[in-house]
Design a binder for these strands. Sequence first.
DNA 1: GTCTATATCCTGATAGAC
DNA 2: GTCTATCAGGATATAGAC
Lengths: 223, 223
Amino acid sequence: MIEAHQEQALHAASQTKQRILDAAERLFSQHGFAATSLRRITSEAQVNLAAVNYHFRSKEELIQAVVLRKLDPINRRRLEILDQLETGGVEPTIEELLHAFFGPIFEARRAGVQVCEFPKLLARAHTEPGDLMTRLLPAAFSEILARFGPAFRRALKVDQLELMWGMHLAIGSMAHLLSGGAVLAFLSGGEADANDYDGALRRLIRYTASGLRALAEKENVAG
Amino acid sequence: MIEAHQEQALHAASQTKQRILDAAERLFSQHGFAATSLRRITSEAQVNLAAVNYHFRSKEELIQAVVLRKLDPINRRRLEILDQLETGGVEPTIEELLHAFFGPIFEARRAGVQVCEFPKLLARAHTEPGDLMTRLLPAAFSEILARFGPAFRRALKVDQLELMWGMHLAIGSMAHLLSGGAVLAFLSGGEADANDYDGALRRLIRYTASGLRALAEKENVAG
DNA sequence: GTCTATATCCTGATAGAC
DNA sequence: GTCTATCAGGATATAGAC
């Protein structure tokens, strides 16, 4: 049995936590992790500064919480699409698998969710304070890897090692695509539109599928 | 005519400047731009804190100087290889062009006894917050773009816009490949070796060439 | 050109009252 | 759980002696 004052306290607690997470997500996405201070976050969330260290133990754990919360629905959507593909009875194509893998991130972005910081975080994996990424990757991607890995291996007829090199290269392209349009704008002289998510996703899938097939071919020819 | 004390002053000046650049390069690539303080840089360089703001006007201009200094020899090497390819009389293949474009960075990394942290620096430059990249790109890549762009367009028979999307994706793969092995190690369960530069470059070229061709095909079919 | 010393501000984190 | 007040230290930048 839950007492009224406990309910109220619980509600207040989760409300404060939510407000912090919401503000942090927005600010992290906009300015990056290092450039966003806890003061700025608590100010925008209209909560007390000390609340961050109460609800999360440190800034770093707040970052982890923000990233995982943001990533969770995207990963669930990925697995949902993969489930649909695999219940069809026919083996999914590489393009379909890539659409299941890349699509949800672009969907989220189209829906206004700022996801650009996570790819940046990926690219900084080796240096982030306290090996953040090393601790984050298993929690964030183990299930995805376990489900998509075998599916890609079947579709490409490629061994695990070569596939993982390919996925590494593919993730780099995706991250760069999501991390802002500065480079693309410079390359194209302002002609290409980085906010054209449909065009970006379509090109990413086409490019990646072809690249993965090339790695698989080499593997099959050699082995 | 140069007086002796002027010569000495000039020498001292350039020595201090060099020491700052060397220390900054090492620390930036190891910890990132934001996380590296001027105190740490001047401490490691064994020069005075104020020297940074004297020789460079601010931390940001120091960052630009560090990046451009290390990029310059790589870009000259890229153009040197491209020159050799284009004097042969036969049109270079995509693979050859990609080798001219990607190779020098891996060369620099292989010769990494002195500059082993530098590739991380480059990879990091793509993901740092702020307008750093916007200001850096024209100075760093205009000549490269002007020379490699037409060569790729001829080899691929693709229009400018589609090529630039492709180069954007390719640069993402390259940056991710150079930015450290945390992701690759996780994906492959520690099996793939990110320090296998030959294997990484070979796969990057194979993967990228195939991806670019796929984008060009689509373009040709559509148009 | 180089240095010491310091100004001014911001950072993450915490102790302790309520 | 939330607050105030504060700690201990780091940030960039600059003034002025030498």
